[in-house]
Structures are given as structure tokens and as C-alpha cells.
Design a protein around this nucleic acid. Sequence first.
DNA 1: GGAAGGTGTCATAGA
DNA 2: GTTCTATGACACCTT
Length: 656
Amino acid sequence: MKLPKPWWAGGGLLNLTLLLSLAGLRVDLDLCVPPPAASFYEELLPLCPTRPASASSPFPASGGWGHSPQLLAKGRLLREVRALGVPFVPRTRVDAWLVHSVATGDADGAHELLATAASSAVGDGDQEAPAGGGDRPEAHNSPLAAEEEDKAAEPSAQVRDTDGRGSQENDILKEESEAVDHSSQHEEDGEGVPAHLKSLQPSRKDENKMIDTHDWEAEVIREFRNESHLHWSDTAFSLEDLFQLLSSQSEHSLEGLSLEDIPPFLNSANESVNSSEHDINLSHAISHDVNLHEAMLLCPNTVRREPTRTSQAQEPFLQLNSHANTEHTIPAMSFPPADNQMRNLTSQDVLYDLDSNIFDGINLMSLATGFSPLEVSQLFEEPDSDSGLSLNPSYTTTKSNSSHCMYDGAVGYSNDLQSLCQDLGAVGGCYPETCKHCYTNHTTVSGFHQDLKCQQVFHDHTYHVQPGVLEPNSESFTWSKKISGCLDPDRSLSRDEQRAKALHIPFSVDEIVQMPVDSFNSMLSRHYLTDLQVSLIRDIRRRGKNKVAAQNCRKRKLNIILSLEDDICNLQTKKEALKSEQAQCNKAIGIMKQKLHDLYHDVFSRLRDDQGRPVNPNHYALQYSHDGTVLIVPKELVASGHKKETKGKKKLNRFQ
DNA sequence: GGAAGGTGTCATAGA
DNA sequence: GTTCTATGACACCTT
């Protein structure tokens, strides 16, 4: 059963802690911030506005306040420190466990995180986490989700029932350990609740009432927060006041809390620490101060199988969006014996805060898991990056249960990608990369396994639901349509880009094509890629290079054609010029001939024979001798002389 | 609806 | 033997 998050479960304490840290003061949350005692909750209850006096109320009587502010605060601290860019070094076991659980996707830690996050999101999504909560309300309708919520609330109930943490702490831990040891049995029973805690758990009928009244309670809490924010200074200061103040400051993050505000509260906090009012076990707190490495070593089921790791890294995100399926995907939750306390601390509210930390903590994950930042970033960018595979609305609404791959909807090249789909189907579950990147929002329980199966094979990232389950005007439907609309630009992607996206190839097509061969080979060797991926990458490179070569070839051919055309033009121009020059030469020759003819007649007109008569130019010709003299020779002699010279030249040529 | 051009891809040859 | 480049041929798409 989902219970509303306490009003003080904000991030103000973390703001204070962070400020103190920035100011050079080291404040250990375990030491300075003891978990509120049960009396604290009892004191808070009367302050709440009117609320139903129902036995099913999720307020403390039913376990609603059983959320540790420590873990809430630390979870938020992770996020806030990361947001500020301040390296977060886990110092306490809580810190380390949180970092480890978030980072490693550990089956025990992360599953618990997600189980509680899912439950928490159901109740608080509309209060503080509107983002990503579009389909969360649907989990209300899931009986499995209700069971998960019940299970998530159990440890809190244990803590809640424990009045005081000093003397009874060992008993609590013992009970928790027993609860952990029998967790799998509880799940098999379908109850998920230890027998000695069943009395604390509301009945199934009451759950429905609680769901109905949940919104009202959320509103009450919200109003109560505001009220506490307004009147915090009117109350006597105590550690609870510190919580209250910081909770009211939580929405403002660090801007809302100045260093000037800290000293009195710090003093008060120290007083609270030093006082016995809260019965703080300092030695216990100190003993839990471990580092991250220890936390990882202390993690249960430290035997890590590679496939399990990938699936673990994947499942949180599956479950995070499929709130109702935690018990299906987490068959047996077990917790580290040394971290039994953590299990109590791991309420849905803690994980509600942490679900965002999961996504904010990519760097932490990359550090803790050994995954490369690229892999981690891919892990988180999947909802947007590869959702183009099958976000076709038609598929979303009509073919959600189909085990066939529906690439054609989003890709457009149906033939190629259907064949690709078949290839993927042939690969099937033995395709860790694709499974690792799976990110599916399953909204129904019945279709989860089936969809998961399809997801593992076809990497179906559709926000699909069963036909008829999703109302056309529901948020999921709208979200699906938004996603589909956002993916329209993907339709302009080339086939290779779509193929690369389909196979989750972590390189862009441009990189693959333009990369030098050495870098390309080293890239292939550095990354663990399947044969299918390598083959596709090589095909992409070959096709890309050939495409560029074809473009260059066509460009070159076009340039050659253009060049030849230019040559033709130039030759034609030259021809015209030569013709013009020839014409000019002919014209000059004609002029010269005319001048020679005129000169010839002028000379004969002045010549006289021996008898004083004019020489007829038709019978005589002028002949120039070698010595420069000019002789008037009859044309008959000139003609015979030319014949002799010609014969003589011919004879001479023969002898030569 | 057919023609023309553009583009991607494959097959092949050569460096 | 591998890779790259160039190019012809083909198919598909757009105009």
C-alpha cells in the first residue's frame, strides 16, 4: 500500500548538510540527524488538518510515516550534490549503500529501490514528481502494485512499531532480519507480510479506500507543508523543527537557505545530538561509517554474473516504468545481513527520491559499475534515442501484444528492417547489448512478460498497452502520441542510421564512415560488439564510403562533361578565329595580286621595242635575272624555260 | 503515366 | 589479403 510521503521528507536537511560541508563543517547525517522517534509522528498527527478517521488511513497507524528521513535526505543529497557538481563521497553505510544500489543496479538494492520507487511514485507522483509520472496513476488499479506497496510498507511498519531506537533496536534488527530471510517465502505466499505484521497491514478492502483517499491525503500533506513553512518560527525549536524548516526549504534548494540561517539550527541540531531525547546510539552510527567499496563488498549476492549485470542494469528502468511488476521481476529479494537496517530505511519514499537520483547519477553509476560513461549514458538516453523503432501509434494501440517486430511503422523501409527484425529474432535473447539498453514502459501486468520477451528480442521501446486498456484520452496515450510525434524527424534518417539505431550501435554513421581505418579498427576492438553489430558497422562504412565515392564519381563525371563542353566551345571559338584570319589573309593576297597586276601593266605601258612600238604584255613577260637585270622575254621562251627548269629540277630530284 | 534527372547501392576492377 | 577508390549498372524516387 502506498503511503504518502512525510512532509518533512524534503531535501532541506541535505541543503543544510551540503552548506555545512561547503563551509568546511563535516556533518554526519547518521550522527546529527537521528530518525524521528515514534513520538515525533504522534506529535505531528494532531497538527494535520482534518483527515478521515478511518482505520485504513495511511498515516502512522497504518505505516505511512515509516520512512526514514535519513535515507530520504541522503537520497536527495545525492541528487543535489550532483546537481551542484560537487563530488559526493559516500561516508556512511547509508550513503554507500545508496550509491551502490543506484550505481550497480544490484538485484537486492536496486530492486528494492525500484519497488519502493514505483510504489512511491504512485502516491507522490502528482505531488513532487510530475515528470515521468504520466502513467503512474495506472498503478493504482493494479492489484499487484497494491501488493508491492504493502510489501514496501512492511519494514516501515516495523520501525514504526518500535518505540525508541535505543533498547529495542536490536530487536528491530532481528525482526527485520527475519523478515528479510523470509521475504521469498512471503512472496510465495502472495501475502508478502510477516505474520506478526499482518495486524499492522490494512485489509485489501481498506486498500481501496486508501487509494480513494490518497489524493485527499496528498493534498492534506501539501497544505500541511505550506502551513509548516509559514509557522515554523512560532514553534519551539527542536530537531523536529529543523526537519520542518528544512522541509519547507526543500523546494528552494540552496537558494532558500542561507548560511546565516544555519548557526542556531546547527546548535540546536548539536543539542539534539547530544541530548538523550532521541536516544541516539552514536557508536552504532559510527560503526556504520563505511566506504563505498565496503558497501559494494557487503552487498548481498556479490557473485556477479555478466548477463545478470546487464539485466540488472536494465531491470530498474523497466520496473521504474512498470510499477506493478516488481514481484515478477524480483523473484526473491534478499538483503545484506549487515544492511538489514537499510531495508527498513528503504521505503518507497526513499526510492521516490532516488528514482530521480538514478537518472541523475549517471556519473556515479559509471564510477561504481565500471561501465563506460558512454554505456551509462546510452542506458539512460534510450527512451528518446531508440524509441523510433516501434513507436508507431498504430502499433501502440493495436499490436501491443504482437510478438512480431513492427519496424516498418517508424522506420519506413519496411523490407530492410523487417529482415533486420528477423535477424534480431534469430539472435534472440543472446543479444546482451540490445537487452541492456531496453527501456520499456509497460503499463499492464499481464502483458509484461510477453512484452519483455518481445522487448528482449526486438528491442521494442513502444509505450504500448493492451488494446482497450488505454483510453484514447489517457496520459499514456497522449505521451505515446507525443513520442510518436517527436519521432517524426527520425523518418528522415537514412536507412543506415535507422539500422544503427535499431542495433544500438553507439557510434554515429558519420563517425563510422569518416573515421580512419586505424581508429575504426581500434574502435571495433575497444567496444564489445556482436557480430551483427560489427557486420552492420562495416556495411555502413562500406556503403557510406561507396556513397561518397559515387557522389564524387558523379561529380567528377559531371565536371568532365562540363570540361568537355568548355573545350568544344573553345575549339569552336578557335575555328572561327582561324576562319577569320584565313579570310583576312586571302583578302590581303588578293590585294597583293591586284597590286602586282597593276604594276605589271604599268611597266609594260612604259616599255618600247626596237621600233618604238609599245610592247604587248600578252606576248612578252618580264624576267628577273640573278644579277638584278630585268629582261623582256617572249612568253613562249618563258614557258619553255619553265618546262626545262621543271624537268631539270625533276632530274635533279631523281639524282638526289 | 512516362521521361528525365538524382541518388543509393552493388559488383567489379585497379591501385 | 585487405582496404580504398573509381565506375558501370541497376533500382528507386522525385520532379
